[in-house]
Amino acid sequence: MEVRTIKVFTTVDNINLHTQVVDMSMTYGQQFGPTYLDGADVTKIKPHNSHEGKTFYVLPNDDTLRVEAFEYYHTTDPSFLGRYMSALNHTKKWKYPQVNGLTSIKWADNNCYLATALLTLQQIELKFNPPALQDAYYRARAGEAANFCALILAYCNKTVGELGDVRETMSYLFQHANLDSCKRVLNVVCKTCGQQQTTLKGVEAVMYMGTLSYEQFKKGVQIPCTCGKQATKYLVQQESPFVMMSAPPAQYELKHGTFTCASEYTGNYQCGHYKHITSKETLYCIDGALLTKSSEYKGPITDVFYKENSYTTTIK
């Protein structure tokens, strides 16, 4: 009895394709271990004539594949690729409408935090270190965002349907971005203890939790000093293409032309909904596939993004 075979390709990165001759009487799992086709788990399936010449994702289970996976995804987590594939199996079914010149995501599976993050990423200057993220990001900007969303979920250790947080998501993504040249110098002034300067680099240099107003941050924000008295913390120097200011959701007025974009969060910790506000020729609110415009805006804002380049204080 002759062994019926077909020729397929296996890959971990969709760049390096490895030619395989597979036995049609055995499952993919018996031949390769966990195997995925377009995100779908085909591990328990036997090869079919229609699979001839198709590319299958496999887990990096030998040295060659491990090197290829690390170079593309910059992670050695053995569960990463499987999590990416199972997320992709959902995100490829989502709709990605162009809204006001940006790629958004039609609401499904509690994905409003991903839509808000995706919209924000198209408006701030950011370059990702893992080629996987950078490639998928370019495709997302062009309207094909399924891979990018699935990668975000995998890097953030999230599953489809789980509630997510924009600030946490951005923080994970910033860790995989090139923020080497970003720098922030802060000064804390206390009447009792004097003053202390701190220099922050990388992710810490672009994120701040405690106030939404970048102007206020430049002037000074009140913080408790270690001595128990009130101290003032203010920005001395900022070198970065953008800054992200966050605070627990509270009524906040966004003035046209003073910011790049913002995240609105309605609801409580267990259950809520994100919308995205962007400042173009007027203010726009993007909620999944829905767009509304207004000249002014007041609502429960939790993150505001500002364009920056270089700032030095005039406070002496």
Rank of each mutant, 00 (worst) to 15 (best):
E239K: 11
L119I: 07
Y72I: 07
K219P: 02
V21W: 10
A40F: 12
K46L: 15
W94T: 06
A145D: 02
N187T: 12
Q237C: 12
G228F: 00
I223M: 10
G272I: 02
V67E: 12
T91C: 09
E281M: 01
L163I: 00
K46M: 09
T35Q: 05
Y234F: 09
V21D: 13
L179R: 01
Q123V: 06
M209W: 15
S213P: 02
E281Y: 01
S79N: 08
G210P: 04
F259H: 01
Y297T: 02
V189N: 13
Q270Y: 08
Q195N: 14
G210R: 02
L235K: 00
Q122H: 03
Q196R: 12
M245C: 14
Q238W: 03
D109C: 04
S240V: 01
V21F: 15
I301A: 00
R167F: 03
A142G: 12
V203K: 11
K106L: 11
T211Q: 07
G82Q: 15
L102F: 09
T198I: 15
K54R: 14
F70N: 09
F80K: 04
K93V: 09
C182S: 07
A132N: 04
P241C: 07
H74R: 11
I301M: 05
Y138R: 14
H74F: 07
T5L: 12
T75N: 14
K229W: 09
L291A: 13
Q195Y: 11
C182M: 00
K93W: 07
T91F: 02
L283T: 07
N110K: 03
K158H: 05
K46R: 13
P97C: 15
T75A: 13
N129A: 12
E2P: 14
N147H: 14
G53I: 06
C271M: 11
D41T: 12
E215N: 09
G210T: 02
C261V: 00
G272F: 01
Q123T: 06
V221H: 09
G228L: 01
A289N: 10
Y214F: 13
E281P: 04
E52L: 11
R4V: 13
A247C: 09
S294F: 14
H74S: 07
K316Q: 15
R66K: 14
L290D: 14
D287K: 01
T266H: 08
Q251E: 15
H18V: 08
C271Y: 12
K92T: 10
N100E: 14
N61T: 14
L59K: 13
M245L: 11
A205H: 03
Y284L: 11
A136I: 03
S240D: 01
I105G: 06
